[in-house]
Design a protein around this nucleic acid. Structure first.
Lengths: 135, 135
DNA sequence: GTGTTTGCAAAGTGTTTGCAATTTA
DNA sequence: TAAATTGCAAACACTTTGCAAACAC
């Protein structure tokens, strides 16, 4: 459980007003441990919790939180964007059958023999996705 | 340069007739070394080479080639799908600025301390993408 | 009050699909 | 000739945008 004040602080730091919608979405995202959500999943969840918020605002909020460093966008599925509440470097298991995404246990993933990046380029992130099917 | 007969063979093996469109696209894809293309890129290229082929057919062909094991789909950009002519396991550098994708040199990427997949699951692929920006 | 944020509906983007015409074997 | 393939345009799913109304400070 992340302390609630932390989010308020981060929002302020990013110049984002703590509106009803943003606070409610932050609560859903950060009060339930490590999470991996799509815009639609979060929107449905808000509806279920009787939080009135439009899908457009959910999209905006997810991107604003990502820009503020509260979320990390994970690209695994060409059809939709996932957002991860765990922002430090770590790998993922992706279940192709049902679209479920989960953190790989065991902390940071390290690569053996990582080549140097091309001349003049800086690494902004290393994504490791292990794709799974039921057997 | 992959021998041309190889593609014909693979197409036949997958039950795909070697049509004018498929052969022309195969030529563009496999006669120029390691390539990373989107449907639109390949379509434009075909146009430039005066090959009449519709975008829908390019999409179909890319997926048929992928199912036949001639291509590998790489998910790096929520906005579009990339297809890689190198099908064995290897990592990628992705230039966020211009959307260029390139193979990481040095052969297969190995992960340190890879945790076992969840119970009852089989690994179908390991994707490693290093994201880059110019500095 | 002033500037930000929201919600709606419309527009946008990449991709897929239905179906008649064409092509392959 | 029978079955597969193509091309077009329409349909699709997800995401973004324009703008008036609502809200935060």
């Amino acid at each position: 459980m992340r302390p609630y004040a932390h989010v308020l602080e981060q929002l302020r730091g990013a110049g984002l007003r703590p509106t009803r919608q943003r606070l409610a979405l932050a609560k859903l995202l950060f009060d339930n441990g490590s999470r991996h959500v799509t815009a639609e999943m979060l929107h449905d969840e808000a509806q279920d919790a009787s939080i009135r918020v439009s899908l457009a605002t959910v999209y905006n909020t997810l991107h604003q939180f990502t820009d503020a460093g509260l979320l990390r966008e994970i690209v695994v599925d060409p059809a939709r964007s996932y957002f991860d509440t765990t922002t430090h470097q770590h790998g993922h298991f992706f279940h192709e059958k049902n679209g479920k995404l989960e953190d790989m246990p065991g902390g940071e993933v390290r690569l053996l023999d990582m080549p140097a990046p091309p001349e003049g380029c800086r690494i902004t992130g290393v994504d490791v996705v292990v794709r799974l099917v039921d057997e």
